[in-house]
Simulated assay, not measured.
Amino acid sequence: MRTLATLLWRRLDQPGHDACRVSLHDAEYRIEGCAVFRHTDGRAAQLSYRVLCDTRWQTRAATVRGWLGDASVHLSILHDARQGWLFDDVPVPSVAHCLDVDLGFTPATNLLPLRRLNLAPGQEAKVPAAWFDPSTGILQPLPQTYCRLDGSRYHYEAPTLGFEAELRVGAEGLVHDYPGLWRAEA
């Protein structure tokens, strides 16, 4: 295993932190971390995550373990070309067109499209993601657009959420400033 990056984020909209490590294991990229935060409904949460990708940064699998208030969380998300997306072994046809998983409780998964697309400044891409929102507990499509502004900034938009922002990323590709939501700690 070779560690490529580590980062600690502080949540801005409510109490919380997320610690993440990106590593390479043979021919597999891994994004692993743990987010602790106060959920929007006031409950405390601790969610550990692991995302496995191939060498093109396409999601193969993700797991989330932990708790949200008094509810245990233990889920798996699998993706392959033949079966599509499986959420806890159940097919989810509505996200069949998505290449990336987006775990809605961490900024870590923004790394997937940023690395996979490798946009040049001025380039834009629509990249719908298979989005897991812990508020709903389901996997659903999330239309997203990334436009690279320069070497460290992207305009990001998720129109169904009514959200857009200018993301600042580090050299390793992780989002360092997610306005109003997350900021990397120095």
Rank of each mutant, 00 (worst) to 15 (best):
residue 26 D to C: 03
residue 35 A to F: 08
residue 65 R to T: 01
residue 48 S to W: 13
residue 6 T to Q: 15
residue 65 R to H: 08
residue 46 Q to D: 11
residue 82 R to N: 03
residue 78 L to S: 11
residue 60 R to V: 04
residue 114 L to T: 14
residue 10 R to F: 05
residue 124 E to A: 07
residue 54 D to K: 00
residue 12 L to I: 04
residue 51 V to F: 11
residue 67 W to F: 05
residue 79 H to F: 06
residue 93 P to A: 04
residue 61 A to W: 01
residue 22 V to M: 09
residue 103 L to E: 00
residue 23 S to V: 00
residue 142 L to P: 14
residue 107 P to Q: 15
residue 49 Y to Q: 13
residue 135 S to Y: 09
residue 117 L to N: 00
residue 124 E to L: 04
residue 38 R to N: 15
residue 45 A to I: 08
residue 112 L to M: 03
residue 78 L to G: 07
residue 57 W to H: 09
residue 98 C to F: 03
residue 86 L to W: 07
residue 48 S to T: 15
residue 114 L to P: 15
residue 106 T to S: 12
residue 17 H to G: 08
residue 67 W to R: 01
residue 34 C to D: 13
residue 115 R to S: 08
residue 117 L to V: 05
residue 118 N to F: 03
residue 76 S to I: 01
residue 39 H to A: 12
residue 30 R to V: 05
residue 99 L to I: 05
residue 28 E to M: 06
residue 68 L to A: 00
residue 117 L to P: 02
residue 20 C to F: 01
residue 77 I to L: 03
residue 54 D to H: 03
residue 36 V to S: 11
residue 4 L to I: 04
residue 34 C to L: 08
residue 147 C to D: 02
residue 110 N to V: 09
residue 60 R to T: 00
residue 76 S to H: 06
residue 103 L to R: 04
residue 114 L to Y: 14
residue 103 L to S: 01
residue 37 F to Q: 08
residue 133 D to I: 02
residue 64 V to F: 01
residue 44 A to L: 03
residue 149 L to W: 11
residue 124 E to H: 06
residue 51 V to G: 07
residue 115 R to H: 10
residue 145 T to P: 12
residue 37 F to K: 05
residue 92 V to Y: 04
residue 51 V to N: 13
residue 4 L to K: 01
residue 37 F to C: 08
residue 120 A to H: 11
residue 70 D to T: 11
residue 83 Q to T: 11
residue 145 T to R: 14
residue 38 R to T: 15
residue 145 T to F: 06
residue 94 S to I: 11
residue 24 L to C: 02
residue 17 H to T: 14
residue 96 A to W: 01
residue 4 L to G: 03
residue 18 D to F: 00
residue 74 H to V: 07
residue 94 S to Y: 14
residue 33 G to I: 02
residue 92 V to D: 10
residue 89 D to Q: 10
residue 49 Y to H: 14
residue 61 A to E: 06
residue 20 C to N: 06
residue 126 K to E: 15
residue 44 A to Y: 02
residue 129 A to P: 00
residue 106 T to R: 09
residue 67 W to S: 11
residue 49 Y to G: 15
residue 105 F to G: 06
residue 47 L to F: 03
residue 102 D to M: 00
residue 59 T to N: 15
residue 86 L to K: 10
residue 8 L to K: 11
residue 49 Y to C: 15
residue 13 D to Q: 10
residue 69 G to H: 08
residue 48 S to L: 14
residue 9 W to D: 14
residue 52 L to Y: 12
residue 4 L to T: 10
residue 80 D to P: 08
residue 24 L to D: 07
residue 50 R to E: 13
residue 132 F to K: 03
residue 41 D to E: 05
residue 112 L to V: 06
residue 103 L to T: 05
residue 139 L to N: 07
residue 126 K to F: 01
residue 131 W to H: 00
residue 113 P to E: 15
residue 19 A to E: 12
residue 53 C to T: 12
residue 37 F to T: 11
residue 45 A to R: 09
residue 14 Q to Y: 09
residue 66 G to E: 12
residue 46 Q to G: 10
residue 147 C to M: 02
residue 109 T to I: 06
residue 99 L to T: 07
residue 96 A to E: 06
residue 11 R to N: 10
residue 52 L to C: 13
residue 70 D to R: 03
residue 11 R to S: 01
residue 62 A to Y: 02
residue 100 D to W: 01
residue 128 P to I: 05
residue 106 T to E: 13
residue 16 G to P: 09
residue 34 C to G: 10
residue 91 P to R: 06
residue 69 G to F: 00
residue 20 C to V: 07
residue 101 V to C: 01
residue 136 T to W: 02
residue 48 S to G: 13
residue 116 R to P: 03
residue 37 F to S: 07
